[in-house]
Design a protein around this nucleic acid. Structure first.
Lengths: 144, 144
DNA sequence: AAGATATAAGACTCTTTAATCTTAAATTAT
DNA sequence: ATAATTTAAGATTAAAGAGTCTTATATCTT
């Protein structure tokens, strides 16, 4: 998997929060509901989303009527923001052959080619926002 | 990591075997030597290269003067062949969001984009052979 | 035939990632 | 105030990937 499971769950949850958010009322969305819809453990989801709230991508609120909400408009949350928090940027920076000494000056045989491709991937995640992906999707099937 | 560590080691080992092979004598290359140069455990390497010999990418020979050798010319061993054996093709087929139901008919929000990119990656691994990558490299630093 | 050398195969251990469970803290509603 | 609801935090367990170790088998050399 290019992205870790945790990262993928974070993105799915963010997508769900996006599509669930009522722009007028901005009620918090309980993690129980998100976990149920994504079909994954509530406590596990909790830990993942904590990373997003700590990174100020989401904000959370405790107690009855609590939950999470995007901290900013979905149109300004890029997928790369989430990836950076959960997985880090290693996938877009490391040598494809895992060689620690591979660099511009001492490139591994695949260096040039891989660099091109991984930049394309990075651009893709830098280009799309939660709003882009939630848009137009009548039914988002995000279950496992 | 896009490729597993085992897969990366398999590629590195194959690259080393390629660059070490004397086309005239075609002596087998002992795994001890390969392990030493790649700086990884002999027994671990053994298991990885067994996959390649079982897949007929390499051939092996036991006893003194034994070792491994490419089963065919380096110019006809594509990186994808090795990846297919060690990691399988999941990386080039699965949904980037890990959704089992994502398909052409019911695509996830990133489906189209990801498909393009992963095809590019696949093409890259389908294009390069061991000979391509071993060529011209005076010193291959394949150590961890 | 015997000893040395080398891969094969499988059991075992360690590390990382994934997932669960328990307790604490915050907030609301009554 | 008290009880109910909800996230936070940390401990614990499970599963998968990575790596090691032991024993078996094949082959060469003497």
């Amino acid at each position: 998997m290019f992205l870790s499971k945790s990262c993928v769950y974070a993105i799915r949850a963010a997508l769900l929060v996006t599509s669930r958010t009522n722009k007028r009322t901005r009620d918090f969305i309980p993690l129980q509901e998100i976990a149920a819809e994504l079909n994954l453990s509530f406590h596990f989801l909790t830990k993942i989303l904590q990373q997003l709230t700590q990174a100020k991508i989401m904000e959370s609120f405790r107690g009855p009527r609590g939950g999470v909400l995007l901290a900013k408009p979905a149109s300004s949350v890029y997928l790369i923001d989430i990836i950076k928090v959960v997985d880090g940027m290693g996938a877009f920076e490391d040598c494809v052959l895992g060689l620690p000494d591979c660099s511009e000056k001492a490139p591994c045989p695949l260096h040039r080619e891989w660099k091109k491709r991984r930049q394309e991937l990075r651009k893709m995640f830098e280009r799309y926002t939660l709003a882009d992906l939630a848009r137009g999707k009548r039914v988002l099937n995000l279950k496992n």
